[in-house]
Structure formats: structure tokens, C-alpha cells
Amino acid sequence: MIAYITRRFLYAIPILIGVNVITFALFFVVNTPEDMANLALGAKRVTPEAVERWKAERGYDKPLFVNAEADGAARLTDTIFFQKSIRLFVFDFGNADDGRNIGHEIRTRMWPSLALAIPVFLIGLAVNITFALMLAFFRATYIDFWGVVVCVAMMSISTLFYIIGGQYLVSKTWSLVPISGYAPGIDAAKFLILPVVVGVAGGIGSGSRWYRTIFLEEINRDYVRTARAKGLSELTVLFRHVLKNAMIPILTGAVVVIPTLFMGSLITESFFGIPGLGSYVIDAIQAQDFAVVRSMVFLGSVLYILGLLLTDLSYTLVDPRVRFE
């Protein structure tokens, strides 16, 4: 098993290199170092010398991929690509264009993101499974039919409407919670209630429908019929057999998401003024701070790959028949 994990980690390296090359190429085609300098220096009284100085100070005055002037290894290492990208592999993100340390920023912004993402994830999971179980229990009745209709309707509404509606009613009209903002520690609760509710509500439609499908698939298996034939009550069958067995696809589906929770939610964080990683990314995109965007892309890829690995591992834990070759 350790050998398997090692191999998977090694396999991740070419993928991360690929990610790096793609993002690097994309961002430097978009934004030449001149652009970055101009944006950072503002509009008033900018001289070409100031631009050059800015570039030199941040190491953007080197060639992109190959440094023809240097000798030996420096031909490849004394370039923007090497300086800016390879360091990502040891999670040294360097400084943003505004001079702030990206690693420090990620470490501090991670917590608000998690404070929002984890409740949304866990509560969402619980609510969706409960709702889906109810639909499965009442399958083939009008309750199931209308439940599915509600699900489809809810998933046809853009997230933006949930957020706008929630803020307008709950915060503005009814004055129940602060409309936006964040505070660390226990004070965070009053800021997080609304975004969490909105996040959960936005996910009910598709989540419940998906779990309902899984349950129904399980209900039609032979062992469930056998159990039912033995005279077990419907509820017992549902909880003892169906839920237990359906947990495998549910959990493995959920595990893949866990690492990406770190990345936060772009839209929700922005609207509610939560200073997490999601709003960090949006800020960076809008300010065209590509040092940040590149770091976040890298981080996102690493977490995604981690998620895949965790999924595979969780398969073995819930289903001992799966063996690693």
C-alpha cells in the first residue's frame, strides 16, 4: 500500500508540471511584465524607468524560458519561468505584486474559507441525505413526485438569486444577521449563518436528487428484496441495508471534495465579505495579480490530486475487496 501511495505521488509530479506550464504560458501571454508594472504603479506620472525598476525589483526582467546570456544550468534557472514556477513545488509562493507574502496570506485566509466551507459541506450532506432518504422511502407516491419537482425547481435557480434574495430578506428587511463581514473566533457565527443557509439551500436540489438516485439503485438490488421478503419493516430495510450500502458511493463522492474545501467559494465569499481564499482569487483576477492566481491554481491542482488519492484510499477502507496492484 505504501508503494502504491508513493507511485501515485510520483504520478502527480508530471501532472503538476503540466499544470504549471499551462498556467505560466497562459498568464504570461496575457500579461507581460510591462503590464504588471503599469497596473501596479498606477496611472499618474509613470516613467519608463519606474517600470524597469519595478520589474527588476520583482525579478520580471529576466527572459521567459531560456536565458541565452547565462552559462550552464543558469541558462534555464535564471529565467522567469524557473524562478516563479519551480519554487511552487516546495510551496514557496513568493510575493504578490503588491509585495505581500502569498504563503502568509494563504495561511491566514484559509480559516475563514474553512469556517464557511465545512459547515456548508457537512450540513448540506446531512440535509441532502435526509431528504433523499425520505424521497426514497416514499418512492412512487405523490410525495416523491413533488419532492423531485421541488428539487428540480431549486436546482434551476442560479446561486446568485439565492444570495441576493437571502441578503435582501434576512439581512435587510428583517435585520436578523449582519449583511456582510467576518470576525474571527466565536463571533464568526453570526456572519456565517446566512451564507451557510444559502450554500446549503443552493445545493439541496442537485444533491438530494443525486442521492435519491443512489438509494433507488440500491433498493432494487436483490439483497434488499430478500430482506424485505423476510418481513423486515420498510424503515429497517432503508436504514440497515440501503443507507449502509449506499454510504460507499456517497462517501467516496464526498471525499474527493474535501481537499477542495480549502479553496473556498468564490461567489459566496465575495458577496458576504468573508476574507477567505475565494475572495482572494477574485481580487487577484480583478487586479490581474497573476502571481497570486498562479499560486492558487497550483494549490488547487495539488488539492484536487490529493482528493483523487483520498478517494482511492477510501475505496479500500469501505470495500476490502479492492486491492492495489
Binding site: 441578503q167 449582519p178 449583511i179 456582510s180 465575495s270 458577496f271 458576504f272 465579505g273 475572495s279
Partner: peptide, 9 residues
């Protein structure tokens, strides 16, 4: 960052 929360607050 957002105008609406700002104005409402």
C-alpha cells in the same frame, strides 16, 4: 467590496 452591503450597513 460590494455596494449593496455597504449601503445597507
Amino acid at each position: 467590496k460590494e455596494g449593496i452591503p455597504y449601503w445597507n450597513k
